[in-house]
Design a protein around this nucleic acid. Structure first.
Lengths: 194, 194, 194, 194
DNA sequence: GATGAATGAGTCTTCATTCAT
DNA sequence: CATGAATGAAGACTCATTCAT
């Protein structure tokens, strides 16, 4: 992946993700972040306007990673049910790796009603899935009398929620496959065109 | 329900909900809350051990209200699809009224990984819905090869998510019915026993 | 004099005057002030809304002291030229004692164009001198074709300026009497009714 | 006048005057100034040793402008009362134009007791007026038993003070002539040789 | 139980200044 | 001469919490 910004931006962003994962947002100070990033206090403000500006940046970063991972794994297997499986898999993987930061993203959402910002971040993801769904309808893989936009959003939120619920609740490890299957079937029953 | 505590507890809790709705959690100080509640600074700590203790209390309060509302409207109409409709309706209503605080509850979740606390709060709600689901299975209203526990949780999170997404995004008003129907059908397709 | 506020207000105010006299406003931190005053950091903000709020308070304090000193020394000797002499004397005394803070007051003026605040602080002093001047005119001690308001202000600013100029410039000590006489004569020539 | 330094010095100085007029000294950062001047951050330090060095430079600039304006208008009319009138006029004009920066100069004075610097800046102005006064005494236009040095300084400070007081207090516009006349008469009564 | 004045630790943010290019 | 990215020291201010009354 080619970085959106030069090295220092990413250094700070990654340091932030690390530290916040360990201590939580509230207990993480800018001082912690810059120390970890190996830059000066003031340098932070050269790349982020404030502490709050970190959260959308982290979310954006996470989502980009997720979508890239998904696309990479699809590699031509465009069948809807394949894609759905990959989406579920990849979401579970990313959620596992970044669970501590993901929760914070929800919190960030609360910090300043920046719903527009949020929607903007998810935009790419939504559009991508909407197209997948439309194609699936055309190929008669799924039912057609659904609202594509709404369905895309509901699938994403459902998968993300399930993954978070799974990992944040510290379930026993072997349950993961059961969980994912249950989720897949739930969606399949709702969308499969017989 | 008779209140868990005397008048001052509720005075403070309601003041907190009000102020937090207006200013957000971060910008709300204990000082703001007690001023609104008309009690002294120290009095807060007679009823809440800390500022963080407010969030589960608020969530508990909200959930209690929701479940009470649902139960009241059911009144014997125990048919699963009736119940589901009422759950959706009531969740949308409460979300509309308290949307500003609800987002905070997610954030609160992030504040100190108090997942156990969170699960405890939802416990009653989960149990109640699990029973509803079990009964529905027995009555053959819905399919039987599902994980009841998992399904209860996924339904609740799906409905809550949809409601939040709807109200926080400031959709046009007339869309609400469409949204609720789409949601209901989505669930029905997935659970209905033909 | 009975203090306008209770003990802690004055403790902080006096500590501020002391420290600022020693280090200058810019180099004086709130931390310095509260340490000197023997109170906690936060206590400062219970009595002053900000660091800037100190300056008018100091000015007010200084002017009150000056005017009280003058009134005390007058004691019935209401003759205008007596009063003028006392005003000059007292201004020189106070300026000598507080010269380091007085300069700051001018600076404070610059900090936020709070001319109204400034005028309000001087109001009492102005009114008092206007009355003295009016009486002097009536007693034919001074000429009558002058603008009383304007003259009161110009006398005060002239005397204050001369005193500051004298002490801040570190003139040789024996020059003080010469300076005061020159000032007195300058005013007398301008106002004396032959 | 030929500028003391090349174009960039003046660019920065003028930008500083502009920005400081708008925002006040405290809220003006070097960054603001260089942005306005259209030069790089580091360039500032090629021409000024520090932020504080700006203030004497501004004051010097202002005083030079004032004195040049006065000299230009005098043009041979060396009569003391003519000169005084011109001094008053010109001081009021400059004060009107630069009132926001002038206040700051006082504040600058407070910043680091640089009284010597201050005296140095005013030196030329003082000397010039001292000569005018001496000539006036010789021509018997004004009384002779005065301290020339002292009188020069008192006249300048009196006129400057009156002008500042006038403009900073936002008096009604038509009062200006009255004000100037009052000031002129005040000085004339004190110095005129009958 | 109730009060609210006092506390003081904690942190974001600013900005004058430097220096490698 | 000019640049402007990087620095990092410094400080104002907030606010959860306590405790004597």
């Amino acid at each position: 992946m080619e970085s959106k910004h030069d090295g220092k931006y990413n250094k700070i962003l990654n340091a932030a993700i690390e530290v916040i994962s360990e201590k939580g947002l509230d207990k993480t100070s800018i001082s912690d972040i810059v120390k970890r990033a190996g830059v000066a206090q003031g340098t932070f403000y050269l790349y982020f306007s404030s502490k709050k500006a970190l959260i959308p940046a982290i979310a954006d970063n996470l989502l980009t990673i997720t979508l890239e991972g998904i696309k990479e794994k699809i590699q031509g297997k465009e069948n809807f049910w394949n894609v759905l499986e990959i989406v579920i898999d990849e979401t579970f993987n990313i959620t596992d790796e970044y669970k501590d930061v993901i929760v914070l993203c929800y919190s960030g959402l609360a910090i300043d009603y920046s719903l527009e910002k949020w929607e903007a971040i998810y935009q790419t993801y939504y559009y991508w899935l909407e197209e997948i769904i439309t194609n699936a309808i055309n190929r008669k893989e799924i039912i057609s009398d659904i609202n594509v936009k709404w369905t895309a959003r509901i699938i994403i939120s459902l998968v993300e929620n399930a993954a978070e619920r799974y990992f944040i609740s510290y379930e026993q490890d072997d349950a993961q496959e059961v969980y994912k299957t249950e989720l897949f079937n739930f969606l399949k029953r709702s969308l499969f065109k017989t």
